[in-house]
Write a protein that binds this DNA or RNA. Structure first.
Lengths: 243, 243
DNA sequence: GTCTATACACCGATAGAC
DNA sequence: GTCTATCGGTGTATAGAC
C-alpha cells in the first residue's frame, strides 16, 4: 500500500495515462472500422493514424483479437443504449407501439453504423471467440429485455402461456424454460418461441437492408420496416388470449 | 469459320481442357471456402492444394474477385435449386404448407453450407461489386418466385390488393408497383410489402442461426424455425380477405 | 513500462522469361 | 500456359534501447 491515498482515491497517473491511450486507440480503430469494414481492420493502419508504430499498439492490445473484442464489446453496449433510449423516449406519434420505437432505434443504429453492425451481427469473425459471460452478454440481455418488455410486458404469465401457437415438443418446451432466468427463462415456452421468432423477424429486415439485399426498396426502407413492425405487433397481440 | 465442324458441334479441345481446369479450381476453392470461410479464401492456398503455383491459377481467374464472383454465382444457383427442389418435393406431412417446405429447404441449405451462405448473405465483401444483371440476379429471382408462389400463389390479385395492412404512403406504393415485372412488380403494393416482410422474417431466423446468435436454442433450431414459419403462414392467411 | 528496430510467413498482384 | 522473381501489404514475434 502506498502512503498517499491515490490508489484508493482512484486510478494512478500511469493508469490514467494508459486509459487515455486505450481510448485514443479505440477511437482511431472505430474510425478505421467505419472506413474499411471489419475485415479491413489493420493494426498497422490504426497505429499509423495515431503516429505510432505497431508495437506500441501491441502493448495495449497484445493481439488483434483483443482490440476486436474491445470494439465488439463497445458496439454491443452502444447498440443496447440506442435501443433503450429509443424505447424510453416519448414517442412522436402516440399511436406507435413501444416495440416499434425500440425496433426503429435498433434499425437506426444499424444503418447509421453499418460497419459496427456488421462487426457484431454479420458474418462471424473467423478466428474470434467471444469471451464467455462478459460485458457483451450483459449488453445483449439488456437489449433483449427492452424488446421483451415492449412486446410482451403487457401480458400476464397466464396469457403468455396460453398464446395461440403450434404445439411445441416436450423437449423444446423444457429446453426453453430451462434457459437462464435473466434471459428468456421466465417466459412460458410458447411465448419464448414467439419472442425469438419476432427477434429474427426484426433482425432479418435490418440485416437485409444493411447488407444491401433490399436496395431496390430505395428510400422507403424505413417505411417498409415500420409497416412490418406494426404488423408484427398486431399479429402478436392477436395471438394472446384476452386477459 | 474453321473447316471442321468442331466449333459448331461444341467446344474445342482447348476449351474443354480449360473448362475442366476451371471446374477443378472451383471445386478446390469451395473446399477451401468451407474450411476457412469467405475471408480466408486464398488464391495461393487453392493453387497449392492443386499442385500448381498461383500464377497458373491467375491465368484462369485474373483477379481474386473473378474467382469469388464464380463462387457467388454458383452458390446463388445451388441455393435456388435447393429451394425449388424443396418446394416441389412431395411433403412428408401434407399438413405442412408449401411455403414452410420451401423455407425449410432454404434453411437446410444454409446450415449445411454455412460458409457459402455467409458468402452470399453475410457481411458484403468489401471490394467486391456484383456484376449487374447476371446469372446471380436470375437465381435470386428464381428463388424469390418460388417463395412468392408458395406464400401468395393461392390468392387473387383483388385479395392481395385488399390484404389487411397499415396504409402505405403513395410514394412507397408507386415505387413498389414500378419494380421489374419479373420480380415484385406485378404484386399489389400491400402484398409486396407483406412479402418483403416475410422474406426478412425467414432470412433473419436462418441468419441468426448460421451466425451463431441463437446457439442457446441448441438442437431445437429446426423446430423453432418450423413453428415460426407456420405462424408466418397463418398470419399471412389471416390478413387476406375471403376470396 | 514504453518505445524502436528487425524479422518471419503469409497474402494479392505484376512483370517478364521460357 | 506455366514458371521465377519481385513488390507492398498484413498479423505476429523477438531483441534491445531508454
Amino acid at each position: 500500500m502506498p502512503s498517499d491515498g491515490t490508489t484508493t482515491a482512484g486510478p494512478s497517473l500511469r493508469e490514467r495515462r494508459r486509459g487515455a491511450a486505450v481510448e485514443e486507440i479505440m477511437a482511431a480503430s472505430e474510425r478505421h472500422l467505419d472506413a474499411h469494414g471489419p475485415a479491413g481492420l489493420s493494426l498497422r493502419a490504426v497505429a499509423r493514424s495515431l503516429g505510432m508504430t505497431v508495437q506500441a499498439l501491441y502493448h495495449y492490445f497484445p493481439r488483434r483479437e483483443d482490440l476486436i473484442t474491445a470494439l465488439i464489446t463497445k458496439a454491443y453496449g452502444d447498440l443496447a443504449d440506442a435501443v433503450e433510449a429509443a424505447a424510453q423516449a416519448p414517442p412522436d406519434d402516440p399511436a406507435v407501439p413501444g416495440l416499434v420505437a425500440a425496433a426503429e432505434g435498433f434499425r437506426r443504429w444499424a444503418v447509421t453504423h453499418p460497419e459496427r453492425f456488421q462487426l457484431i451481427y454479420g458474418t462471424p469473425l473467423r478466428d474470434y471467440a467471444a469471451p464467455p459471460e462478459g460485458e457483451t452478454t450483459r449488453s445483449v440481455r439488456r437489449m433483449s429485455a427492452t424488446f421483451r418488455r415492449e412486446l410482451l410486458g403487457a401480458y400476464t404469465l397466464a396469457q403468455l402461456a396460453a398464446c395461440e401457437s403450434p404445439e411445441l415438443s416436450p423437449g423444446f418446451r423444457t429446453h426453453l424454460e430451462a434457459l437462464p432466468p435473466d434471459g428468456l427463462g421466465t417466459l412460458p415456452a410458447p411465448a419464448a418461441a414467439l419472442f425469438l421468432s419476432a427477434w429474427g423477424h426484426m433482425y432479418g429486415l435490418v440485416a437485409l437492408e444493411v447488407f444491401g439485399h433490399t436496395a431496390f426498396v430505395g428510400e422507403h426502407q424505413a417505411e417498409l420496416f415500420r409497416v412490418a413492425m406494426l404488423n408484427l405487433v398486431a399479429d402478436t397481440t392477436r395471438r394472446m388470449p384476452a386477459g
